[in-house]
Design a binder for these strands. Structure first.
Length: 827
RNA sequence: GCCCUGGUGGCGGAAUCGGUAGACGCGUCGGACUUAAAAUCCGGUUGGAGUUAAAUCCAGUGCCAGUUCAAGUCUGGCCCAGGGCACCA
């Protein structure tokens, strides 16, 4: 074994050997229980960043740990390779998105291999390749057959910068998720996936995911936005029309003093009198011009105009006016709101501004309010509400809705905020939506035996204002699969999130050319046992994937309800307290770290300083520290190469004659126990690495006190070093392999079993008894752990310290915690 | 406004059940080795009081109460930071 540690040399060597020997291939047939460890696959943007390094290292260590613990592990990797950056790069450089993507994949693959990740590359999936997107298209057709994919004209989010529509989930604070451009509303005919059919079960099944963090589950629950209430219908006085409203507060129905419809409400023109038309039209035109951000700003002063017509409250017979105001949203509920200014803060503000009346119908019986200064929105008892007076408002919600049901003017209603998923994109670099339009036959799905619908090559990427794909004559013009007549192909492609909604299924059967995956294989490997990725996908990818899994289950393609059993959302990688980004110029290039320190140092460091779920602050000194530690480990092994034998005798409790050797044996067992528990318990890799250091420090300390080693010493040292190598092998994958072979081992360290500990040895030989007086530590006594509670008590009371401090005081009582502590309570 | 997460030394962070607060590392200070430096090794490092040095004592886990023999940990009420949702009726 060489004296000095040369990571660059040994890392390349082992990467090559592992690849040749297929060390990390996964077999479909194995007696071992399965374990599926998965990182969110990357977009091939060009180069890995530290966020990738962190993500993949975490998953890799998990995969290796599970493999050593007897699992048949699936740990695959692939590329989320459709999407706009490739197309933008193509437009800028006159290249083809495919070439740009391929080059990036090749470079990033090389980087992943340099990191020493244990992927089974035979299962690689690349979403932009026809052998993958054929099945994305096939799945789209299955959704279409089930009525879960449909086309409709709707107000949609449009990003001018990206030249395409976006899903609701891709609009962040009124801006495009990708380019930050302000999103506009457009009326367009677009393809949607009917995720709303699954709103209830997507919400309910969050309870089946104890392995997900509450933060992600709450974000999804908020996004789905379930509320329970009622639809109430109000007759219009001047017209033969009704206005239905959705409300969660039917208990306040007697307090309605006006009603608001959204400026885009479908019957608004009918509901406007000729005298009010001019003002209403102007208001609506103005609302149209406003951006979503302006319109949805909560601190904006509410505005509106009266329509001139009125409704009748069926509960009171009272007549009240209709208004239009942009605080009513056309896309939620019915697009109309019953206004109860006394019990809703928004209605209160609006009523105040326009001097609309206010009627109190709910009161806190202890402390009634007249609601002159603020709306009363807390629970209470009904007043001014006819037969419901005196009823608690929660009961009244049911009773009043029931009256509306009985009277034929209302019903109970559960409402969700979740909207259907808009999946068409007016871009080239995506999976073409497999549909053609025929003048005679209408929308026709492409027959399955004609899949894939390939992306055309004869496109002009320099076009502005439309999708490049529309410039391909060979693509656009086609024949109708139904009548054989001339037809036009759909030129929209699918949102990349469609491709990524099922890739984790494909890994189970990546080479299948008859099906997206075989049912037995997908059922064997899925659900994913541990999914690791960034929090930014809390709603987008993770919600879409859950929807896909449930839809595919209902089609009989698979037999499980949820795709990801456990989810670890890793924190961001920061530098100097802020997120690494090119614009801030605080990025660290993984290549430089590999070159200067090696991949093992990078892996060790990225796991060392913070628990995986928390943000990680990159520091150059920290990297240096990890590199030094690996050198220290290397020296420990290389300087002892002659003293270490892989054929050491197994050491049991009491088998060692020397006290210091027995102590070291205990330290080793404690390390095995501690490290195993830290990984098993939420993957606390930062403390795992502390324990590596403690073990190494302990071995050095032990050795520094021994000028000469006899047979017993050599035996315990061998056990110590072999245990250390095994424990470190999931993290320092190259160094441990090199050391393992230098010590004369035959097979790979990555095929050995995880070490086991003996409970009797995983603790110190004696205990430190803590002696407290009134709960404060006053003394520490080394004691035999076999001592009884009475003996411990006696020991504590006999301590000089205690005698001194209790002198002249009364001992009220004494609490003994076995093997740990004695607390003496004195007055 | 609602929801989630977090708040512990100069810094990152540790502390299964309520039972030694600050593991391990970074930084820093001192020492050894060296002609010197690097590398390496050894030691100190929460604050304050105290002492030639020690011993020792006091305070301390965002704030205020509470429960308990004992609270970083449990309960109630706040404050702050990060993230999510938001005129959703």
């Amino acid at each position: 074994m060489k004296d000095a540690y040369f990571p660059q040399e040994i890392e390349k060597k082992w990467q090559k050997i592992w690849e040749e020997k297929g060390t990390f291939k996964t077999s479909d047939s194995s007696d071992k229980p399965k374990y599926y460890a998965l990182s969110m696959f990357p977009y091939p943007s060009g180069k890995l960043h530290m966020g990738h390094v962190r993500n993949y290292t975490i998953t890799d260590v998990i995969a290796r740990f599970k493999k050593m613990n007897g699992f048949n592990v699936l740990h695959p990797m692939g590329w989320d390779s459709f999407g706009l950056p490739a197309e933008n790069a193509a437009m800028k450089h006159g290249a083809n998105p495919e070439n740009w993507t391929d080059e990036n994949i090749a470079y990033m693959t090389k980087q992943l291999k340099m990191l020493g990740l244990s992927y089974d590359w035979d299962r690689e999936v690349t979403t932009c390749k026809p052998d993958y997107y054929k099945w994305t298209q096939w799945l789209f057709l299955q959704l279409y057959k089930k009525g879960l994919a449909y086309k409709k004209e709707a107000a949609v989010n449009w990003c001018e910068e990206c030249g395409t529509v976006l899903a609701n989930e891709q609009v962040i604070d009124g801006k495009c998720w990708r380019c930050d451009h302000i999103v506009e509303k457009k009326y367009l005919s677009q393809w949607f996936l009917k995720i709303t059919d699954y709103a209830e079960v997507l919400l309910e099944d969050l309870d089946k995911l104890p392995g997900w963090g509450d933060n992600v589950k709450t974000m999804q629950a908020n996004w789905i936005g379930k509320s329970q209430g009622a639809i109430l219908r109000f007759k219009v006085v001047e017209k033969d029309l009704e206005v239905p409203v959705y409300t969660t507060r039917p208990d306040t129905v007697h307090g309605i003093t006006y009603l608001v419809v959204a400026p885009e409400y479908k019957d608004i023109e009918e509901l406007t009198t000729p005298e009010n038309k001019e003002a209403v039209d102007a208001y609506r035109a103005n609302a149209r011009k406003m951006t979503e951000i302006e319109r949805l700003s909560t601190d904006r002063v509410k505005t509106g105009v009266p329509l001139g017509t009125h409704c009748i409250n069926p509960f009171t017979g009272e007549k009240f006016p209709l208004w239009t105001a942009d605080y009513a949203l056309v896309e939620y509920g019915t697009g109309a709101v019953m206004a109860v200014p006394a019990h809703d803060t928004r209605d209160f503000d609006f009523a105040k501004k326009y001097n609309l009346p206010l009627k109190v119908v709910i009161q806190d019986s202890q402390n009634p309010s007249d609601c002159k200064d603020a709306a009363y929105t807390e629970p209470g008892v009904l007043v001014n509400s006819n037969e419901f007076n005196g009823m608690g408002n929660e009961d009244a919600k049911k009773a009043i809705t029931q009256k509306a049901v009985d009277g034929g003017f209302g019903k109970f209603k559960t409402q969700y905020r979740l909207r259907d998923w808009l999946v068409s994109r007016q871009r080239y670099w995506g999976a073409p939506i497999p549909v053609v339009y025929c003048e005679k036959c209408g929308i026709q799905p492409v027959p399955e035996d004609q899949l894939p619908v390939l992306l055309p090559k004869d496109v002009d990427f320099s076009v502005v204002g439309k999708s490049p794909i529309t410039t391909s004559k060979t693509f656009v013009n086609t024949t109708c699969p139904c009548c054989g007549g001339p037809a036009r192909r759909e030129t929209d492609t699918m949102d990349t999130f469609v491709c990524s909604s099922w890739y984790y299924l494909r890994y189970s059967d990546a080479k299948n050319d008859k099906m997206p995956f075989a049912k037995d294989k997908v059922n064997k490997w899925l659900p994913v046992d541990q999914y690791v990725g960034g929090i930014e996908h809390a709603i987008l990818h993770l919600l879409y994937s859950r929807f896909f899994t449930k839809a595919l289950r209902d089609m009989g393609l698979l037999d499980f309800d949820e795709p990801f059993k456990n989810l670890l959302t890793q924190g961001m990688v920061l530098k100097d307290g802020s997120k690494m980004s090119k614009s801030k110029g605080n990025t660290v290039d993984p290549d430089e770290i590999f070159e200067n320190y090696g991949a093992d140092t990078a892996r060790l460091f990225i796991l060392s300083d913070s628990p995986p779920a928390r943000d990680f602050d990159w520091s150059d000194a920290g990297v240096e520290g990890c590199y030094k530690f690996l050198n220290r480990v290397w020296r420990l092994i290389s300087s002892n190469a002659d003293n270490i034998s892989l054929n050491y005798t197994e050491l049991k409790a009491g088998s060692l004659k020397k006290k210091d050797n027995d102590d070291l044996l205990r330290v080793i067992h404690m390390a095995i126990k501690g490290i195993t528990n830290d990984i098993s318990n939420d993957f606390q890799f930062n403390t795992v690495i502390s324990k590596y250091r403690e073990l190494v420090n302990a071995i050095y300390d032990w050795q520094n006190k021994k000028p000469e080693l006899d047979d017993e010493d050599k035996n315990i040292l061998s056990f110590a070093i072999v245990s250390l190598i095994k424990l470190m092998s999931p993290v320092a994958v190259h160094l441990t392999e090199e050391a393992w072979h230098d010590l004369g081992a035959e097979g790979s360290i990555h095929d050995v079993e995880w070490p086991k500990w003996d409970e009797n040895l995983a603790k110190a030989s004696s205990i430190t008894l803590i002696v407290q007086i009134n709960g404060k530590v006053k003394d520490k006594i080394e004691a035999d752990e076999a001592l009884s509670q009475d003996e411990l008590k006696a020991l504590a009371l006999n301590s000089e310290k205690v005698k001194e401090l209790t002198q002249g005081k009364t001992i009220v009582k004494t609490i003994v915690v076995p093997k740990k502590l004695v607390n003496i309570v004195v007055k």
